[in-house]
Design a protein around this nucleic acid. Structure first.
Ligand SMILES: [Mn+2]
Ligand SMILES: [Mn+2]
Ligand SMILES: [Mn+2]
Ligand SMILES: [Mn+2]
Lengths: 230, 230
DNA sequence: TGACTAAGTTCGTCATGCCTAACTTTGAAC
DNA sequence: GTTCAAAGTTAGGCATGACGAACTTAGTCA
């Protein structure tokens, strides 16, 4: 249904759109050989795929230049993001997956799940707005819920906040945070003291030291009172 | 894990193995053009696929003769049956699918679901032995639980029985039986009277007349006391 | 024993995705 | 401005899975 009138998309093609979308969202751009590395293929395969995607109108592509998604391509990608995040949420909430495992597991599934199944899942989950990592789940029209979050590093010492989103690029971070229960929704307090690049945080009754680099991957919603700093 | 050391199976190839297995189980055999019809492809495509399957050792195939599964091919097929039936069970029990819809929905999924996901599902379901239609679910070793059932037509008039399995080839039958709650486990009583080829059955407090042809698709487990007839 | 038809196969072709080897472009360093 | 390495593309090949057209086989009926 939501693939509109599109003449079928293969898993590979979908993977390209998704990746291009994620790159675009984070302001990065990648050329053929970088994409090749990401997909675990060789550069000529990328060139070939980009040509096909561009013929189908999902990607704007001129040789020797980094590709860009078309509006159409972005629409397909956003719907894929929806599938991905709904599936992640489902696996965590209904099948006891941990938030570290789930991204991997969804890689194949996201390309196969039917609109019908996705709707059943969405309904069963109560139409969630965020996935287990706090990433927004686009609705059926591609609208992305936004929350205004601040990286943990910007939280004033002594202030409280709610965990909003944890960047899922570091599996290790997810494991650590999972162990202390620092999931989206959890309450955190930034404690005073910043010894050698690390900052201290209290979650529940536990305290941990987090490296600055890593803390930047944790996004929080400060509790009412002002709190932006640094 | 359970695909052993097999050098990857495509969805199409899996579909062939599954179909050949189902044909073999029901004692039928089909040649290329019949298979072609089932898969919605043309005959030459079947010949090609059978050649590939036979090269990989999953099918014994000599031209102009109906193909047969090898032991190896059967093993793959049985594991597919497991995936199919577990998924059906899951969709019905956890995602509010009806037992009519579920077979269709699982067609794609059965080829994509990872062993890990399947294990999670199996665990969550409590390692079920039968799917929503009463079909046995093979365990991880390919062992099929068997139940000794009798077609409804063989049930003595006046006897009670438990619905064991409903052949899922007639969607309409599934709908009708679903409406009166005649799922596996339900209690049925065969009533006296067999007007023009139909036989009467009571399920719960409702009575229905079922055509003989159709009743043969319903398999029951008679309640202790003897009951085979006709 | 043929003859004929339906079933089945072979052949050449296409699209998708992937590869290696060989070539071209780009852009940065000099 | 020229040079040169890295990035990117083209060309040619392979496997899969599908197609139509043309050919072969099997089995039935005379
Ligand atoms: Mn994927
Ligand atoms: Mn996520
Ligand atoms: Mn299938
Ligand atoms: Mn079933």
């Amino acid at each position: 249904m939501h693939t509109h009138g599109n003449p079928k998309v293969s898993s590979s093609a979908e993977e390209y759109l998704l990746t291009l979308y994620r790159l675009e969202s984070s302001g990065e751009r990648a050329g053929s050989s970088q994409l090749a590395k990401m997909f675990g293929v060789k550069a000529p395969s990328v060139t070939g795929m980009l040509r096909r995607l561009s013929e189908r109108g999902w990607v704007r592509y001129q040789r020797y230049r980094p590709p860009e998604l078309t509006e159409e391509g972005r629409r397909v990608a956003v719907y894929l993001v929806r599938r991905h995040r709904l599936l992640e949420t489902f696996l965590v909430r209904f099948l006891d997956y941990s938030w570290e495992e789930v991204h991997e597991e969804v890689q194949q599934l996201e390309h196969t799940v039917s609109d019908s199944l996705l709707n059943h899942i969405d309904r069963k989950l109560g139409h969630p707005n965020y996935d287990p990592h706090g990433d927004p789940i686009p609705d059926e029209h591609g609208n992305m819920p936004e929350h205004k979050l601040v990286p943990l590093t910007r939280l004033e010492e002594g202030s409280q906040a709610e965990v909003g989103r944890v960047d899922n690029r570091s599996r290790h971070l997810l494991t650590v945070l999972g162990e202390i229960g620092a999931f989206p929704g959890a309450n955190v307090t930034r404690l005073a003291g910043t010894s050698n690049g690390k900052l201290s945080v209290r979650v529940g009754r536990r305290e941990i030291q987090i490296d600055g680099d890593v803390a930047r991957l944790i996004w929080v919603k400060p509790n009412r009172s002002g709190s932006a700093a640094s």
